[in-house]
């Protein structure tokens, strides 16, 4: 794509499209699922874990290592805690057996 548009511009396209997808995909959510949905999307932004991994892998200074390690731990809590707690909420949506 480099020859046609710059990488920065391509990322901007991705960003704008993702905004619309985010709006569209939850627009029909019933109230009953608002809490699990908030919790589920909360887990998805745990993708910051990737950023933490990349930063820590190239950290050299003590500050960089401390910040990077904290970022990895925080991101990991966000991912694992987020998905598990959402699953726990959703376990409760089983239909009552007749």
């Amino acid at each position: 794509m480099g020859g046609v548009i710059g990488v920065g511009l391509a990322l901007l396209y991705i960003f704008i499209m993702a905004i619309f997808v985010g709006f569209e995909v939850i627009s029909k959510v019933p109230v009953i699922l608002h809490t699990p949905l908030m919790s589920g999307t909360n887990a998805i932004h745990g993708i910051i874990l990737l950023g933490g991994m990349l930063v820590l892998a190239s950290a050299t200074s003590p500050l960089g290592i401390v910040f990077g390690l904290l970022a990895v731990i925080f991101g990991s809590i966000n991912v694992f805690g987020g998905f598990v707690v959402t699953d726990r909420m959703l376990q409760m949506f089983k239909r009552r057996k007749p």
């Binding site: 990322l11 985010g22 627009s27 998805i44 950023g51």
Partner: peptide, 19 residues
């Protein structure tokens, strides 16, 4: 320059705003 973080973050940003 990480596309997964852009998409994941933005999806939450926009759906969270709507919510």
């Amino acid at each position: 320059n990480n596309i997964a973080m852009i998409i994941g973050g933005t999806l939450v940003g926009s759906s969270g705003t709507l919510l």
